[in-house]
Design a binder for these strands. Structure first.
Length: 481
RNA sequence: GCCCCCAUCGUCUAAUGGUUAGGACACCAGCUUCUCAAGCUGGAAAUACCGGUUCGAAUCCGGUUGGGGGCACCA
């Protein structure tokens, strides 16, 4: 098989969303798996809706996901000369013609047809115009568009996943391919670029399925070999309807800001419509490349399942080296970095090593990056809690107080360098015997102020001897009266 | 309204004429455990419906129903 060349061609009229990202991913996987080429093309022919900020968002998001273009990015807005040449050729050969019908006129006709229960289609009125009439109108400066002549016949076209699909051109009518020679429309520019870029496979969303016969017609008129078309099923919302803002659907950049990892998003997206060999579902981009087969793509629309995304993100969060997470975390709410040391709001000074330890404790309990520090924020700021929280099940204040005093007593004997979690756990185990609750629980609350947190001996090590004793005494004071 | 596509547990999916219909997420129970999270073990849970082809159908064919997409001087 020839080395494939594929493209992902978003139009910058919005941020990169989940569906588009998955289309990009499958294009990328197919190219890489076949040692082919993956291209990025910006389909920005709509001058009004296209925005530079959206293009930047799309490019940033793709980079973040690790989906890089193999060649320089092509922008359709920079290829107007090429399109103009093709439009003129189509006009010359009689495959396209000028249409001077006004929008109002067309809309009225459309409504008429609709009320009669007919298929709304252009009548082909301006097809009849002689070249003389056309030239006169042109000379007068009348507004026009350029339409493609559509044959009156039924055809069948091929989709890689679905096979032969019937299509009746008689239901279509001559469609607009350009507003004028310098303002081509997507329906025209896409096949032109696919041809000149040597695209072998067009892998795109199923919403483009009905566009395919139209574009195939252009390939035919221009006597070009068309690419293979592969239409991907759409991603639906959790309720099976079209994925939209209503479902909390976010752009890739918003997921990034919300603390999702690219590995998680990639893994999640890949499994929406594709599956590797065997039963495993945790899979890296490199492994996907090795296994990817176009034939294995699904035809069924997949619903977006948020809890599975969370599952993947938790998993990849735990896999991620603490050093990498350090780069991603925002500490500004909790203090400042000074020469590789972190000065927290509560006055404590943490070495880089301790910060990594804190991250390690936090990431075990977080779903998204931003939650890591949130789950262990007691390390960074002063906290308070209700006295009753210190109570373990049906133990008494008196019992808790005695236990905390005993812990304080034992901890005080340790040298600073002995203040390590294994050692501390040993002490607590000895103190508690069989019944650990009345010892571990109050200490954990004293050190975290929370119902749920990492184990107390881990907290104590990070806090260090002095702060740990201080926090225990604070708890004892609460129990004092 | 017309055209097209699609149909396996709640969700994502595996099984391309012969399996006790497999896995994952979520859910439930148990184990572990000071809490939370993680982990381990187990459980409940599906071939939309009706016909046909076949010794045999989730799988092939037809219809019904349901869902989705499209019918622009957007892409």
């Amino acid at each position: 098989m020839l080395k494939p060349r594929v493209r992902f061609a978003p139009s910058p009229t919005g941020k990169l969303h989940l569906g588009s990202a998955r289309t990009a991913l499958f294009n990328f996987l197919f190219a890489r798996s076949q040692k082919g080429v993956f291209l990025l093309r910006i389909d920005d022919t709509d001058k009004i809706r296209s925005k530079k900020e959206y293009e930047e968002d799309i490019l940033d998001s793709l980079n973040w996901l690790g989906l890089y273009s193999d060649e320089e990015i092509v922008r359709q807005s920079e290829r107007l000369d090429l399109y103009e040449k093709i439009i003129k050729a189509l006009l010359d050969k009689g495959y396209a013609y000028y249409c001077f019908c006004s929008k109002e006129e067309l809309e009225a006709r459309r409504q008429e047809q609709l009320t009669r229960g007919e298929v709304p289609r252009y009548s082909g009125k301006c097809r009849q115009l002689t070249s003389q009439e056309v030239n006169q109108k042109l000379a007068k400066g009348e507004k026009y568009v350029i339409r493609l002549k559509v044959p009156e016949k039924k055809i069948t076209y091929k989709d890689f996943l679905r096979g032969e699909i019937p299509y009746d051109f008689r239901l279509l009518g001559d469609f607009v391919i350009a507003k004028n020679e310098r303002e081509p429309l997507y329906l025209l520019t896409s096949p032109i670029d696919d041809h000149y870029q040597g695209i072998t496979h067009v892998i795109r969303g199923e919403d483009h399925l009905p566009n395919t016969p139209k574009q195939l017609l252009i390939f035919k008129y221009l006597e070009w070999e068309p690419p293979i078309f592969v239409h991907l099923p759409l991603i639906l919302g959790p309720d099976g309807s079209k994925l939209s803002k209503r479902h909390g659907a976010k752009s890739i950049s918003e997921y990034r800001e919300a603390g999702f990892l690219p590995e998680a998003l990639i893994n999640f997206l890949a499994l929406l419509g594709w599956h590797p060999e065997g039963d495993r579902e945790i899979i890296t981009l490199e492994e996907m490349i090795r296994e990817f087969k176009l034939e294995k793509l699904n035809k069924t629309p997949a619903r977006f399942n948020f809890s599975k995304l969370i599952f993947f993100n938790r998993y990849y969060l735990k896999q991620k080296p603490n050093n990498d997470l350090l780069q991603l975390l925002d500490f500004s709410n909790y203090g400042n970095w000074q020469n590789d040391n972190f000065l927290a709001l509560n006055g404590l000074n943490y070495s880089r090593e301790k910060i990594l330890k804190i991250i390690n404790l936090g990431k075990e309990r977080a779903s998204v990056v931003n939650e890591i520090l949130l789950t262990v924020d007691f390390f960074f700021k002063d906290f308070d809690y209700d006295k009753n929280l210190l109570l373990w099940k049906n133990s008494s204040f008196e019992e808790i107080k005695i236990n905390l005093q005993a812990i304080e007593n034992e901890f005080r004997k340790l040298k600073e360098e002995e203040f390590k979690s294994e050692k501390l756990k040993q002490i607590l185990d000895n103190l508690a015997g069989e019944n650990k609750g009345p010892v571990f629980w109050p200490l954990r609350v004293a050190l975290s102020g929370k119902e749920a947190s990492p184990p107390p001996f881990e907290l104590a090590e990070v806090f260090g001897k002095e702060k740990t004793l201080e926090l225990i005494n604070k708890a004892l004071k609460k129990l004092g009266d």
